[in-house]
Amino acid sequence: MADAEGFVEADNAEAIITRIEHKSRKIETLLKQYKPVEALKTALEGTYAIIGDERCKSAHWIVVHRAIMAIKDVDGMLSSLDPEYYDILMKYLYRGLATGDRPTCDQFLRIHEKLTEKAGHGCILRFLTDTVNTV
């Protein structure tokens, strides 16, 4: 029983990786067209549907990280980003801050400040308390 489930999951993981690769190409295209906000939206879209095991999470994180690092106008990005993405963006911001990488932290902390102003402390609490849907 456990073997069968593991097998299905591995199969599923391959499909997810393919989808993440597809997403990555789309984001690269959008970034080349100077559409960083569109790229970020694409990166955050349907995250939970394509989050599987740790390997998928890492692959997806690389894609999201790429999109977040390309953001220059934070206020502009937040005002055009749909509020439903605030929670998931917050989760990735904390993942980025956890890396300890200087350029990443500088950028992510800048966005964190603006996002907290916009989405409130509730957004941070939802990140802290959600132990099931981690990114």
Partner: peptide
């Protein structure tokens, strides 16, 4: 405790649930 409030109608075998997210504590 995740800054959400839940409303449930038709409490029984097939409940209808709604989550409301809010911005503060």
């Amino acid at each position: 405790h995740n800054s959400m409030i839940y409303f449930v109608d038709d409490v029984g075998p097939s409940p209808l649930a709604q989550n409301v997210v809010f911005r503060d504590l």
